[in-house]
Design a protein around this nucleic acid. Structure first.
Lengths: 203, 203
DNA sequence: AGCTATATATAATG
DNA sequence: CATTATATATAGCT
């Protein structure tokens, strides 16, 4: 039964010092469990977001199919990116329109909608494959120029420095990676072109 | 490990039906698993709907809290009843309203909501949260992490590096300036307080 | 990005 | 509506 697992868990809870890749008396966070509060670590939050977002969309999709109901789901990423999902052929506008006459009093004896609608829903869960970073990049550039740094306090400035500094590190790493990729595929012009389809190559 | 359970399952599968999985419906369906298609039995479908709906809403809520993002979810029950969920203070109208503006090209404003540039929809019920200055920074930080660097070409990466690098320089300069101002006015508590009283956001 | 241990969700059942 | 066996989802790692 489950007793075994439960017991195991209990033991680990009580004394986590045996049986596996146990380090030492540090309260290692148990896997899976998480507090219901904003995740402070940016990286972690980002990762969680990606994973949970997919999970959520999958669930939404399943619900719409299994129960033959209409579902509209919209998520704004931390960066403000839009992730929409709408079951059926309805458009976001349509769903939205139906929400307008949202009665405060819910009427209970509704029977129906479409009796025999057996549409085969084909929704691509992998939306937005090409977010076009170029526009974001330009946007960021503009933003940087317009910021009134003088209106910022010390705390903000320091944080800003930290963030931008980190960002720069990330970018440089990526640049290095890219360059090394280029070097490696130097002898494969086709692949190279494939990977860098965007625009120009290295210098 | 899980192997044990998996094995068990395999064996059951073999023992019950050999030759294919086409013969469902006769043997007892395994728990938990379900095909991704409309549930024909009305009662069953209704039950599933209730359970999955709550699950979905729970997930949506968790996502919004854990990752600090906006989520809007709307479900129409088979009976046509409306089940809405919107994270934060925003109204359904607002969320969907924002969707209408955004084409397929993503571009959210890192520069954030400007009260004056308010969108078409007016919300009188809720007051828009304070334009937290840190919000911009956080958004930027998130954005950095979310960018798909692989989709960027060398040119973009280089440009990005340049921009961010410049930004960092500016920030450092400003920091130095700020610090020196503080030092100089050390003996003038009033002025000092004046310069710093700007904001105190913390989170 | 994959992987594994846990945690959750939930389909069938009582 | 509670329970329980399974199936999924996903947190922490690597």
């Amino acid at each position: 039964m489950e007793e075994r697992r439960m017991l195991q868990e209990q033991q680990q809870e009580e004394a986590h010092g045996h049986g596996g890749k146990e380090e030492e008396g540090k309260r290692r966070k148990k896997r899976g469990k998480v507090e219901l509060r904003r995740i402070e670590d940016r990286t972690s939050r980002q990762v969680r977001f990606s994973k949970r977002r997919s999970g959520l969309f999958k669930k939404a999709f399943e619900l719409s199919v299994l129960c033959d109901v209409e579902v509209a789901l919209i998520v704004f990423s931390p960066a403000g990116r839009l992730y929409p999902f709408v079951s059926s052929e309805s458009s976001v506008e349509e769903i939205f329109g139906r929400c307008r006459h949202l009665p405060n009093t819910i009427d209970l004896n509704i029977e129906v909608r479409d009796p025999r609608v057996d549409h085969d829903i084909q929704i691509d869960l992998n939306e937005q494959a090409a977010p076009d970073p170029l526009s974001d990049l330009n946007h960021f550039a503009d933003w940087i120029l317009e910021i009134d740094v003088n209106s910022m306090g010390m705390a903000e400035l320091r944080r800003f420095e930290e963030i931008v500094s980190d960002a720069l590190t990330v970018i440089k790493n990526n640049l290095r990676m890219k360059v090394s990729q280029l070097t490696q595929t130097e002898r494969n012009p086709q692949e190279k072109a494939n990977n860098l389809s965007s625009q120009e190559s290295e210098e």
